[in-house]
């Protein structure tokens, strides 16, 4: 098991109280696995991703454990976490387009970043160039400022930078969202290529676009309002979703060819509950078409079939 997360809780401290953006997450990602993380905007995907690498105020660690390659990750301790960053866990942030210092040439930025982490940039230069070739970027980009690159080029530069030290785990947050459809496909394939070349051991790919995950993910984890709703192999999640929320999500995807093709994601009536003071019981209850009495209690996130977990009373019933 490359990554194992147990009961992870991360809240945002605000003046009005704690925002429970990640309220108890338990899951694991296997060696070489690409796990997709999906769900509506604001459900806590980035919170989960970020807390695994840089947990800092206003984020607050409330509880839970993270094991990476069998070793506990001290995610609650900003200083002790430092040596693991980049070398063990790395991230392609959601705002990758702005992730490069605008006043440094790409090459110099990479050199300074590596030296600051105690890695010889000279030794890594051939590998860096090889990877630039792999993402179809000319070596000239090293002599350019970020402003001279297109959005898609910046995205690929960040992909290369983030994986340069061959981390065990890569968190890729919305890498495809800002790109046009054909570029999306290429970038998604590059991510798979990175895994196949063993640049990264395993990967969490965050997106609200399940069709991308269908292309590249081995498994999919669906979140709803700070909780895990369902996790399973991609085929199972797409063909036989068990959680009502996942079913609605999947049915809104035309390409995958389930019924109700015209229904959009935003077409799920209602909106997620507030995370400041979330309601008791199943958080999907308000919008769930099949809710019943029992849903006033919180459903456990439990295995239905090997590797397929669901948090829903109907599914367990």
């Amino acid at each position: 098991m490359a990554l194992k997360v147990e009961g992870l809780r991360v809240y945002y401290q605000t003046l009005r109280g704690d925002v429970r953006a990640l309220d108890g997450a338990s899951f694991s990602v296997g060696d070489g696995e690409i796990m997709g993380l999906a769900g509506e905007s604001g459900c806590g995907k980035s919170t989960l991703g970020r807390s695994l690498i840089l947990l800092k105020p206003p984020m607050k660690y409330v509880g839970g454990e993270v094991l990476l390659d069998g070793d506990p990750l001290p995610i609650w301790d900003r200083e002790r976490m430092a040596p693991y960053r980049y070398k063990k866990v790395s991230i392609i942030p959601q705002q990758a387009m702005n992730a490069l210092n605008p006043t440094r040439k790409i090459g110099r930025l990479i050199r300074e970043l590596l030296e600051a982490r105690g890695v010889s940039s000279r030794d890594l230069l051939p590998e860096l160039k090889r990877r630039l070739d792999l993402v179809e970027l000319s070596h000239e980009v090293l002599k350019m400022y970020p402003i001279e690159l297109s959005g898609g080029m910046k995205q690929r530069v960040v992909m290369v930078i983030s994986t340069l030290l061959d981390p065990s785990l890569l968190i890729a947050d919305e890498v495809t969202s800002a790109l046009d459809v054909s570029t999306q496909k290429r970038v998604a394939e590059m991510l798979v290529g990175f895994r196949d070349h063993k640049f990264v051991r395993s990967m969490i790919v965050i997106t609200h676009d399940i069709s991308i995950l269908y292309q590249i993910a081995d498994s999919i984890l669906v979140m709803y309002a700070g909780k895990l709703a369902e996790k399973g192999p991609t085929e199972a999640i797409v063909r036989r979703p068990r959680h009502p929320y996942t079913q609605l999500l999947i049915s809104s995807l035309p390409e995958i060819g389930v019924r109700h093709t015209e229904r959009r994601l935003s077409g799920i009536p209602g909106s997620p509950p507030p995370l400041l003071e979330p309601p008791q019981g199943c958080r999907f209850r308000e919008r769930c078409p099949v809710a019943f009495d029992r849903c006033r209690e919180e459903p456990p996130f439990e295995e239905l079939a090997p590797g397929h977990l669901v948090a829903c009373w109907r599914a367990h019933g």
Binding site: L54, S90, P93, N98, A99, L100, I161
Partner: peptide, 24 residues
């Protein structure tokens, strides 16, 4: 800014991040 956050997530020591921030 996003670039500072990114560097911090990659474990860059504070000195370099501050130097960039000051320069910009």
């Amino acid at each position: 800014a996003d670039y500072s956050q990114y560097l911090e997530a990659l474990g860059t020591p504070r000195g370099l991040i501050r130097r960039y921030a000051f320069r910009n």
